[in-house]
Design a protein around this nucleic acid. Structure first.
Lengths: 119, 119
DNA sequence: ACTATAGGGGAAAAATTTATCCCTATATGA
DNA sequence: TCATATAGGGATAAATTTTTCCCCTATAGT
């Protein structure tokens, strides 16, 4: 990452987890990679609302943080595959927990999030 | 919140969960409120790196999303107490899972997050 | 009269994150 | 010959989030 004016807060486990997880698309990237969608173009199709650029950037950060690994096949046209590292896999239960919570309260959450939009 | 140029992504549970959780200080606010630190001034002391202003803003969002409730005592000087709603409490296991993961891999995470800073 | 306390909010600046646009390369198929 | 697929990166613009600064309330204490 670039230079930061405001120092990172890394006081507790929550901060550390947040630091590697909280980019707009990172959790979804981890999720889809875990589901077996390994190639950048697949991931882009799975997450069409994200620009190609950010996905690349966030994938690189996930890689730098050791959550995913990247294999570049020296072929043309280029082929790249991402997969979760063992470390990355340890996050899956956590992401599941988060996703299940969101699924469970979907109706409520959607109403409240959207409800506030016209306030 | 204000008007948004870029629409929210609320496709799945993960998105919904992210929407209510991913402000810079929200998870910590929930955590400390759950630990019994209810008053704004306590929370500010617990999270000294956050400006007073943002904490107010994020607390209000948590309230709008139904995760915390706010009681204003009509006394002088004013007294306010936040607490988790029943709905907010359902998030605690999820936040725990996240925090435990971060604690468990603290050394590794810290090295990788800070390691990349001088790259 | 001041000051401290406890809680809050508006406006604008700063910081950060995301999006947009345009560029590279090569092989295949129309 | 030209478009498409595939992966990626630089520069810049836009959007969003967070910080900073200053203001307000009312009472109690000195």
């Amino acid at each position: 990452m670039k230079d930061r004016k405001i120092p990172l807060n890394l006081n507790c486990g929550l901060d550390l987890a947040g630091e590697v997880l909280f980019g707009k698309w990172k959790i979804r990237l981890l999720w889809f990679i875990n589901e077996g969608h390994k190639r950048p173009s697949e991931l882009q199709r799975k997450i069409p609302d994200a620009s190609r650029r950010v996905l690349n950037i966030q994938l690189k950060e996930l890689e730098e943080h050791g959550l995913v690994s990247k294999v570049i096949y020296p072929v043309v046209p280029p082929k790249v595959e991402y997969s979760l590292t063992d470390f990355g896999k340890t996050l899956i239960p956590v992401i599941s927990a988060l996703g299940n919570w969101g699924d469970q309260y979907e109706v409520l959450l959607r109403a409240r999030i959207l409800g506030e939009m016209d306030t």
